[in-house]
Amino acid sequence: MLTEAQFSLVARQAKRRIGLALHADGLDFVDRRLWPLARREGCLTTGELVSSTQARADDVLWDAIVASLIIPDTSFFPDKSAFKALSDAVIPELLRARGPSARLKIWSAGCASGQEPFSIAIMLEEMKNEGRGVAADILATDLSSRLLDKAASGLYSQFEVQKGLSIHRLIENFERVGEMWRIKDRLRAAVRFDPHNLMNDAPLGPFDIILCRNVLAGFDADDRRAALERLALSLAEDGALILGAGEDASEVTQAFHASHGQGVFLRNAMWKRAA
């Protein structure tokens, strides 16, 4: 069990390293989340994990500690309405503006174990099969190297492939490997995975579409505004940002306005000049 002092230490590191604002009464939560990492590191308690990391000023382990506080989104096609808005409105509009042969750049920011970017790859292939072909590069990033390794392997348990995937999408896009299921090579090759920290790393881009769903929810208002404005700078002027269904970018910054229903935001043309 962590002491209050150790909890405060973790909270400060989480805020500084990844923008995560922990609740003051979150000690039990942190303790539960850190336990698997403590065990992997050969520590007998979570307190020992935190103390030894602090004593050695171990940057890599601090990153692993704060990364393990994030509860990843592990469903395929998370938030069906956002995917529908992408395929039926956002992408067709971008192609109208850019011409049908344009190559779209898509960024899945906070991709966890890869379900979201692979869902985009599946969606794009389905659009192609419907005669609405669109060329795109998909970049997927996360701050957790553990989750990125898993994502890049394209391997999922039987439990995981039954969350958000219809049986048709499963047998069309995955193959069985022992007890696991692996996404087919052509889809795996369609996504590039890289480490990236939305809080501290230089902005990437520009992208035509950024998905950053339920990632900024743990940030406090100032950090959330700053992160959203960095995302705005990573977005083409007519690009779209997809947030989680309950998230509202226009609440904290002038950079975006809502469009196409829940979770979809477009950049405000005026914002860049004002900034």
């Binding site: 469903s75 039987q158 039954q162 969350k163 219809s166 049986i167 048709h168 047998i171």
Partner: peptide
């Protein structure tokens, strides 16, 4: 949970397919 079995079920007219073990989240999904 063999792909051939799943295909057989779909051919026979199944709309969806759950591989056990399952939980509430999978059933709902």
């Amino acid at each position: 949970n063999d792909v051939s079995r799943i295909s057989e079920a779909i051919k026979a007219g199944a709309d969806e397919y759950i591989m056990r073990p399952f939980d509430g989240e999978i059933l709902q999904s």
